[in-house]
Design a protein around this nucleic acid. Sequence first.
DNA 1: TTGTTAATGGAAACCATATTCAATAAGGAG
DNA 2: CTCCTTATTGAATATGGTTTCCATTAACAA
Lengths: 160, 160
Amino acid sequence: MPRRARGVYPWWHGRFRGFGHRITLGREAILDVLIKANKHLSAEDIYMKVHSVYPSVGLTTVYRTLEILVKLGIIYKFDFGDGRARYEIVKDPKGVDHHHHLICSNCNRVIDYTEFIDDEVELFKRTEEGLAKKYDFKITNHLIQFYGLCKECSGKNKGF
Amino acid sequence: MPRRARGVYPWWHGRFRGFGHRITLGREAILDVLIKANKHLSAEDIYMKVHSVYPSVGLTTVYRTLEILVKLGIIYKFDFGDGRARYEIVKDPKGVDHHHHLICSNCNRVIDYTEFIDDEVELFKRTEEGLAKKYDFKITNHLIQFYGLCKECSGKNKGF
DNA sequence: TTGTTAATGGAAACCATATTCAATAAGGAG
DNA sequence: CTCCTTATTGAATATGGTTTCCATTAACAA
């Protein structure tokens, strides 16, 4: 937890407090890990990193904090099909770091890609508007993932 | 399991046998349920339906069969975020039944939509080609889901 | 500083899915 | 049609990520 200049608070404190949540050491540490990692991490990944600095923070707190962060829209929760969820800090959809995922059905390797995002975002904007109107559904975000076989697996594995 | 005219086999038998799998009563019943349901079902949903007709078919067989069907590309497996997977028969991407999902973050209701699919298919064709080339990744399918608040939930629930 | 109440961690509970294993049956060979 | 090999099966049990319980601690408003 980097020391903070007097009276200067991280961007997310307002949103956090605004929903009635308290700022705690554990929560700061957890979000700090997500921000610094800048890639998808499992709850256990996060727990281990936080725990190495603050051994008093338990796995339960990690799960509870992640749940809040997801609901507040501060982080994303992904399912890559290997039985454990992954979490990732939300970036501006227009930002440089925004990406989607390629998932290998065989080895579960996950590749981030940033190409074609502009086209996708453009299409989604249109689709979202149409769907929101038709179903009276307030869309907050979308999930896009491609599945297939990665370079290593496509050679040896023929389906099953 | 409807009686079959002599020598006439369901479309999926060839693919099934081709991969060395045997055709069994349980497997026919399970796939039959998926075909007739024509919507996403959980393993338990499928188990109960099959079990009501063939009490001898166990939940284990349902899971094992679903795993094979997914690997053979005969059904899709979805995660809607409520902790249990859903399965759905694969239809031709150009077919009328092809659809994607709108998921309510609050009540977990899932809405199927078929609108705008053409645009998406078009975009994905381009994206898939580009990604396949760049990452040497053999894409077999994609997942798109929109998250947000449904009509019922958007009024009362403000985030958290 | 104090009081109210959210937050915490460790243990236990949960629950969907996976695995084990002996019994059974699909389907090719004869 | 029958036999034989071996995939498939169900029941019970294990697994493992996530959630809940509950007594204790600490955030922060007054």
